[in-house]
């Protein structure tokens, strides 16, 4: 039911873990629906230099988290903000229809992390 790309990212997820001195942290989903994605970003000179994830969820949830961290590295904040859940799914060669809503929240989690970063910038 999953594409080869999804299975590859599920089997060998890129960028697992947390960043202790992250510039932004964001999460999306909740345990009741069965998916939680937490994204950490490190920003330097307006570019996302590193991104990591922690995810509780199904194959699609883990693969989209892995993919979004790959997609976002090296991007400017503006470029990162236009990455959508749909774009992540497309980069993975598509997701089963039932997974599009519940497990495809990685870009939203990334946007939460960017909001957190922007909030910290204002305070700082």
């Amino acid at each position: 039911m999953y594409s080869d790309m999804v299975m590859d990212h599920f089997k060998n997820p890129r960028n697992i873990g947390s960043i202790t001195d992250a510039d932004g942290v964001g999460s999306e989903g909740n345990p009741v629906c069965g998916d939680i994605m937490k994204i950490y970003i490190k920003v330097k000179d307006g570019r996302i230099e590193d991104a990591k994830f922690q995810t509780f969820g199904c194959g699609a949830a883990i693969a989209t988290s892995s993919m979004v961290t790959e997609m976002v590295k090296g991007k400017t904040i503006e470029e990162a903000l236009v990455i959508s859940n749909k774009a992540v799914a497309e980069a993975l060669g598509g997701l089963p229809a039932t997974k599009m809503h519940c497990s495809n929240l990685a870009a939203d989690a990334l946007h939460r992390a960017i909001e957190d970063y922007q909030k910290k910038q204002k305070v700082g």
């Binding site: 345990p31 994605m37 937490k38 922690q54 995810t55």
Partner: peptide, 8 residues
């Protein structure tokens, strides 16, 4: 569990 945010 190593990749789950709930574990920690």
């Amino acid at each position: 569990r190593a990749m789950s945010p709930l574990t920690s």
